[in-house]
Amino acid sequence: MSTAVKNELRVCMLSVKYNIMREMLNKVTFLTNILFMALNNATFIVQWVILFSLREDIGGYALRDVMLLWGLAASTFGLAHILFARAFSLPDLIINGKLDAYLVLPKNVLLSVLTSQTSVSAIGDLLYGLVILCVFSLSIGRFFLFVLFTVTGAVIYTAFALLMGSLSFWFVRAEMFAGHMTSSMVSFATYPDGIFKGAVKFLLYLVIPVGMAIYQPVHIMMDFNAGRLLAVLGYTLLLSAAAVFVFYRGLRRYSSSNLMEARG
């Protein structure tokens, strides 16, 4: 690894560490946020127990499969919001000209921006995901796959937020749109893909990337398939590359922008 890359990563790690340290100043708030978020997620177990009491399989999933799905969705969401929370509030930085501060530093703009904020309750989500895995379907192989897919899922989710958020470089109104699109990914991620039919499935792989972030990984954990695993990894790389490309195109527009309205 070159020293430049090492230095980049060192600064990112420090940023995340310091962000979390800041949140830990008030220990009670810190802990209640984490605990209550885990509890919050747990209430949805009620929903699925009820649904499975009506029917034994839902979209080809049994209760433990849906729990695995839920666990992966929570840990994916959690990891993305612990490391890259700023991706989800990117439009605010763009519209209010707050990217300036990152542009005068000699570090990678995108990485510095992404790691400049953290969400404490997301720790609760990540832990909840791991607990769910342990309670409902633990095996050594599945544990490693789960960790791997938490990472790829978090990257896909962040990349999607980055793509949507970058729309604000071009459209001022895109802020709310981006928020609804990223949150829709969570909505889909907590229901089994088997209930959707036909054309809708395309939507979940092409428009909202929940298919490769959550559905395929769950299927791979239920029934291992190396080809699908490679597809998930390839998709992760591809989507990230696209997101980075669009962000930097937008950043160029930000720097050469002549639309004052968007800048304040």
């Binding site: 008030n26 708030t29 946020n33 605990l35 209550f36 509890l39 919050n40 209430t43 949805f44």
Partner: peptide, 13 residues
């Protein structure tokens, strides 16, 4: 309390 959000989450759920 400093942060009432966690209680909102529970009520909402």
């Amino acid at each position: 309390i400093e942060d009432a959000n966690p209680f909102h989450w529970l009520y909402n759920k």
